[in-house]
């Protein structure tokens, strides 16, 4: 089973790297789904079947569907793709790349010296998770529900068409 973990990890990393570099939004989205599914597999292998299911359902399912809707709504065609290509000139990768490598180096450096237990492979069942979630973490659940409500209201408010559509001008806030 360890091989599954490593293969999934490799797939996830490659797919993610492709997401970041694609010019076509739909292609990137598909790679992102691959990446998320790979991560879901990792969760399953590590003995967390409940969150693996949530990953598939909500991340790879619901959230990605939202993205697809928006892409369809905005009707981004080939023109957008050409522009994307023009925007991705090689030199702009240098700064962020260095920063990311430094950050990764720091994370690795922190982890190297630690005495961490290996993952046991035994499952933390959905029952355990649920008991904890609605026991000690009940307040967190309430807060999460409020957050979702706020997201709902915010999305509804922002998503309204402003009529009549205004041309961009200096006076706009």
């Amino acid at each position: 089973m360890n091989a599954v973990f490593y293969i999934s990890s490799l797939v996830a990393v490659i797919a993610t790297a492709l997401v970041v570099t694609r010019v076509n939004v739909v292609h990137a989205l598909l790679y992102l789904i691959v990446s998320l599914l790979a991560v879901a597999l990792i969760f399953f292998v590590l003995g967390a079947p409940f969150v693996a299911a949530l990953e598939v359902l909500i991340y790879a399912g619901a959230i990605m569907v939202l993205f697809v809707f928006v892409i369809m709504m905005l009707n981004l065609g080939a023109r957008g793709e050409r522009r994307q290509k023009a925007l991705l000139n090689p030199s702009i990768w240098i700064g962020p790349g260095i920063l990311a490598i430094v950050l990764l180096g720091e994370l690795v450096y922190v982890l190297i010296g630690q005495e961490l237990p290996p993952t046991s492979g035994s499952e933390v069942s959905p029952k355990q998770v649920s008991l904890a979630l609605f026991g000690p973490y009940a307040l967190g659940v309430e807060l999460a529900s409020v957050l979702l409500l706020a997201g709902l209201v915010g999305a509804y408010h922002l998503g309204r068409r402003v009529a009549p559509p205004r041309a961009p001008s200096k006076e706009d806030p």
């Binding site: 700064g95 962020p96 920063l99 430094v102 950050l103 720091e106």
Partner: peptide, 8 residues
């Protein structure tokens, strides 16, 4: 970029 550099 500024935020990230600071965080790093």
């Amino acid at each position: 970029l500024g935020v990230v550099a600071g965080a790093v």
